[in-house]
């Protein structure tokens, strides 16, 4: 019982942590007068603003699904743990059907005049679960994977990128060798192998994705550090006798952070897509967890039926597509706002 409880807690802590980190970041940007113009830039571009609000809305749904508390039943005078229900489950928990039901289909119970009043907006899947509820739950999985993977790969990429760019020579050669090696292995094969090594699970999946995705960030950080290293402000910091750690963290990092941020945001949609591909290959999220990849996987048999069951794949596709679209547009708006080098066409 306590074991279940702990697992729930652990899974829900990760997204909460990611959200609070993000909030802290946004707050710190808002406090800094130098960075305040970012808000105006994003507020000025309509697609950027729309994307931002859509992301917030989806984030809210994911957060609602994150906060879980268990249901206790009292059987024979003993308190029994049943299962955890999230806030989302409590808000929207449609009845279960026998099997497939088309969107908005009226449910006529056999040998009775009573019609089931509740209709499923997007129908139900093979085991009778409401498709809309499943797709909404997929949001949490997507946010968790994108957030946790970025939390893993960002520090790795920044750390090795700064070291390689700043020290150069042997350190640089070693780190470049390491990431070139990882990069040279075909990505899907490496992911399959890593998932086999780690075993199935959400945290394991994020670790595997983190191992393959820090390379791109590291490359960006290294290149930018190389560019900044010989600039006047770094030279004067050196002349003042500051230690390399201080120069890297207090002087170079703030100057390249915007580029890191942009490339991290633009990578998020790739991570969500990778989750779908891996779940589809059967090595993604553990069974029992809502995931768009699993929904799309089911669609292969469903489309071959007559009449074709199209609602499952459409729902998964709609949410994934809008999320990826919002991330892409938000990333573009962020790039326009943060990077003075990009020309506004």
């Amino acid at each position: 019982m306590t074991q279940y409880y702990l697992h729930d807690l652990l899974i829900s802590i990760i997204p909460v942590l990611a959200v609070s980190l993000l909030a802290a970041l946004i707050f710190s940007i808002k406090k800094n007068p130098l960075h305040r113009h970012i808000y105006f830039y994003i507020a000025k571009s309509r697609p950027g603003k729309t994307a931002f609000f859509l992301l917030c809305f989806y984030g809210l749904i994911a957060a609602l699904d994150t906060v879980k508390f268990p249901v206790f039943y009292i059987i024979d005078g003993k308190k029994t743990y049943n299962r955890s229900l999230s806030l989302l489950d409590r808000l929207y928990n449609p009845a279960r059907e026998e099997s497939y039901a088309a969107p908005l289909a009226e449910n006529q119970l056999l040998d009775s005049d009573i019609k089931n009043q509740q209709r499923h907006i997007l129908g139900t899947n093979i085991s009778g679960e409401d498709v809309l509820a499943n797709a909404l739950k997929g949001l949490k999985t997507a946010f968790t994977i994108a957030g946790l993977t970025t939390l893993l790969s960002l520090p790795l990429g920044i750390f090795f990128g700064l070291l390689a760019g700043f020290y150069g020579k042997k350190t640089d050669a070693g780190i470049t060798w390491f990431y070139s090696t990882l990069e040279s292995i075909p990505e899907i094969l490496l992911l399959i192998a890593l998932m086999k090594v780690f075993g199935s699970g959400l945290v394991q999946l994020c670790t595997a994705l983190g191992i393959t995705s820090w390379v791109g960030l590291c490359r960006v950080v290294r290149g930018e550090t190389l560019r900044q290293k010989n600039m006047e402000y770094v030279l004067s910091a050196r002349t003042l006798g500051l230690s390399p750690v201080v120069i890297m963290l207090r002087h170079i990092l703030p100057n390249i952070m915007h580029i890191v941020l942009i490339s991290a945001v633009l990578r998020l949609s790739g991570l969500i897509m990778a989750e779908v591909i891996l779940s589809y290959l059967g090595i993604g999220v553990p069974p029992g967890m809502a995931s768009w990849g699993i929904m799309i996987d089911q669609a292969r048999q469903e489309l071959a039926r007559t009449p074709a069951v199209w609602w499952n794949i459409s729902a998964a596709f709609f949410f994934m597509f809008t999320l990826a679209l919002a991330i892409n547009y938000f990333g573009d708006a962020l790039r326009d706002a943060l990077d003075p080098r990009t020309e506004k066409h």
């Binding site: 897509m273 591909i277 071959a304 794949i313």
Partner: peptide, 22 residues
């Protein structure tokens, strides 16, 4: 273009297979 970038390849595979061959 951004719409096209936001679609996973698997969706293309399944829907094209369905539309063009089934």
């Amino acid at each position: 273009c951004v719409l096209g970038m936001s679609v996973v390849i698997i969706i293309y595979i399944i829907t094209f297979q369905w539309i063009f061959s089934m």
